[in-house]
Structure formats: C-alpha cells, structure tokens
Simulated assay, not measured.
Amino acid sequence: MTETSEEPTPDGSMPSAVPDAEQLASRFEADGVLLYLIDGQELSIVDIWPPHASAGTLKLQVGFGVTGLVARTRKPVLINADSPRNALHRRLLRLEPRQTVARMCVPLPGLEGEMVGVLAVHRSPDRPFDQADLDDAESLAALLGLQLHANRLWRAVSRHRTERDRLIEQAISAQEAERRRIAFDLHDGVTTALASMSFHLSSADLTVSRLEAGEPEGAGRRDAFDSVRQELATTRGLVDLAYNQTRAAISGLHSLVLDDLGLVAAIESLVQSAGRPGGPRIDFFVDPEADVDEVPDHAAAALYRIAQEVLSNAVKHSAAKRIVISLRRVGDSMVLGCADDGTGFDPEERLTARAQDNDGAQHFGLSSVAERCAMMEASLRIESAPGRGTTVLVELPLR
C-alpha cells in the first residue's frame, strides 16, 4: 500500500474525507445541496451546490421554516413537494414561480451532541426522498457535524484574532496620539516658557552690564534697577509656569496618586484638578460597599484613565452645569459612572468617528474608552441624546 502525504489546502486546513456539497449532490442524485451552519439564532450557508453568488446573504432563523424547525427540533424531515416562500431561498433552489421541490433536511450534531448545522438536499418532486436516502444521510450526519463544528470554532478564532489585531492597532494609535499630545503640550507650554525665560534673563543681563559700566546715571540708574527687578519677576513667573506644565505632563503620563493612595484618591485628585472657575460643578460619590482593593492594579489604572477621559470630555464638550462621577459595587462587578446635564450627542456617530478639536487636532475620546474596556473585558454603556445630557457606565467584572 502506497503512503500519500496530504498537503494543506489554501485556507491552511488539511484535506478532509468529508464529502462536500457537490459530492453529496452526486451521492443522493440530487439537483442541489445546501449545508447550513447554526450561529446563534441564525442559519447561514457554508457550502452549496450548484454554486450561487448570493448564497452568503441568505439568513434563516432557527425555529422558522422547514430548515429552521429541523435546527430547533433536531428531527429530520422528508417533504415530497415543498414551495419555500423566501424569494432568495427559491433562487438558490432554482425554482420557478409555483414550482415545488422534494426536500430532505437532516440535523447535524457536533461535539457533545450540540446542534451545529443542517444538511438540506433537494430534487424534483417526481423523485421524492425515501427512508433509504434518510438512513444514508443520517450515517453522514456525525461526520458532517464535526466538520461544521470545526468550521465554527475556526470562525470564532478568526473573529477573536481580527478583534485582537484591531485592538492592538488602535491601542498603538492611541499611544501615538497621546505622545503627540504631550509633545504639543511641551512645545507650546514648557518650551515656550523656557524661550521667554531666556529672553527676559538676557535683557536683565544686558541691563546689569550697563549698570556695571556706570551707565546710566541719576534717575536713569534707578529705572534700570527697576527694569532688572521686573525682568527677574517675569522670569520667576515663567519658571512657575514651566514647572506646573511639566507636572501636568507627567501626571498625564502616570498618576503617582494612584500608586500611593489608590483608585478612589486618584479619581478625587482628577475631580479637584478638573474644577475651574465658572465651570461645571463636579461631584464624586463612592459606594461604601465598593471594595476597590479587589480591583487588580492593571484594571485600576484602566478605570483611572477612563475616568480621566470621560471627565475631560464632559468638562470640555458637554457645556454641563453639573457632572457626577461615581464608583459603586454591583454584584460581582465594579461600575464606574460619569453623568452630566449637558448638551448630549449621538453615541453611534461619536463611537464610529474620531472627534475633531477646533484646531483640527484629533483626539480619541469615546473610542479610546471603548478600546480600554475591550482590553480588560469590561462592558461599556453610553446613554445620550442631543439636549438630554450624557451618562457613561463602565462595568468591570471582578471574578
């Protein structure tokens, strides 16, 4: 007996002894075969013979129609003359108006008896399927079901991989955007302050040199001393400005309060720093039952960043009179909330498009919040409407 080596198929899987739709059609002397995969409450076609360009768009509901009932009841069906009402389904079966078809639908079990699909075979009503056909189809059901189960698992893996790659890409983009923001802050704030300090110190140094040379004299000399004092006072103010802006940039990178005093103190610090004269009133409420010590360090850091983002958005964009930040325990979850009475917005538009600042600089806003939630498997709920304020709720499972 000669051994043969199997080569992977183009999609990376190994060739299988499981018959495809064309082979099944030949086996049952059928006009066509549709192989359905159950995904939640829908059935979708994963293999069809003869091929049809619209096969991928047909979605049948579990429990409705012949195929859906087979998926729900797990019982095979033989019909001598059927006339499906779904127009796309009829096109896939290549039926003319008022034309009927003989059908055989067999449930396909996967691992541990889980229902994963339906085999649907059809041919002319002149040659209805009989018990021998059904016995033959049921002999293949387990093999076809295992293949479909593997197909479904592969699809799930592919979806998770795609989602993971998307999150990684967006996380990197968010990091780069944050670096650009910090660079702009340093350039427009600290660098400008340092350049002004240099100018004022140079002016003071020039005046001191003139005073050392004995000029000017009289009243002009007193004016020169006053000028030096004024330059030094201005420089001192610029030093304070550069110091505060540097601290703000460092705080934007990492919260020392979070490390030293924990999540509650860090959010309290955010609330205090976000307040401004003429701005909205900002309150922070903590549920006494919320044991924040149960929140892992990485999750606490993510919740802090989310609080920072939603609070910043509310202060800058909501035109609210009052903002309420809350941290509470709900069952086995920690819930962070931010509610305002501002102008509100359309959440769908905001989540699918990056907002633009007035100066054209991009910021990630709620998309950044959604990405952080996805990475720590927290749920995000946004309730808002134009003129009705905004509520953002982040629920983090603790177990």
Rank of each mutant, 00 (worst) to 15 (best):
V62F: 04
V70N: 03
V66H: 11
A55K: 01
V46P: 05
P15M: 09
H52C: 06
K75I: 07
V77R: 14
P76K: 06
A87L: 14
F28S: 09
E22W: 02
D82M: 12
A21N: 02
D82C: 14
V18Y: 02
S83V: 00
G63A: 08
E29W: 01
E29R: 11
W49F: 15
H89M: 10
S16M: 01
V33S: 02
S83D: 11
S16N: 01
I79G: 06
D20N: 15
E29D: 11
V70M: 05
R74M: 13
I48G: 14
A71R: 04
V77L: 15
A25T: 00
Q23T: 10
T57N: 10
Q61F: 05
A17W: 06
Q41E: 14
P76R: 03
L60R: 05
G56D: 11
G32F: 05
D82R: 04
R85S: 14
E29Y: 04
A25N: 01
R72Y: 08
G40D: 11
P51H: 03
R72K: 13
L78G: 07
S26L: 11
L69S: 11
P15V: 06
R90H: 08
S16W: 00
L37D: 06
S44W: 00
G32R: 04
K59C: 06
D39K: 12
I38H: 03
G68P: 05
D47K: 07
A21T: 04
R74Y: 12
A81G: 09
Q23K: 10
A87K: 12
G40R: 10
V62I: 06
A30C: 09
E42G: 11
P15N: 07
Y36L: 06
L43W: 02
G32M: 08
I79R: 14
R85L: 13
L78C: 09
F64K: 12
H89K: 05
A55W: 02
I45S: 01
H89D: 05
A21D: 03
S44M: 06
P19C: 12
S16G: 04
P19E: 12
S54L: 04
V33Q: 01
Y36W: 14
I79T: 13
P84R: 11
A17F: 10
P19K: 13
Y36P: 01
T67P: 05
A71K: 06
V33R: 00
A17E: 11
A87H: 12
A30T: 05
D39R: 15
P15T: 06
L24W: 02
D31I: 00
I45N: 02
L43I: 00
W49Q: 07
E29F: 03
G68W: 08
K75T: 13
S54T: 00
G32C: 07
G65M: 07
I38S: 05
D47S: 15
A87P: 15
V66E: 15
A17G: 09
L35H: 02
A21F: 03
D20E: 08
L34F: 13
E29Q: 09
L43Q: 02
N80Y: 01
A17N: 08
S16C: 00
P19Y: 13
P51W: 03
S26V: 03
F28H: 09
Q41M: 06
P50S: 09
V70L: 05
Y36F: 15
D39Q: 15
S44K: 09
Q23R: 14
I79N: 07
G56Q: 07
L43V: 00
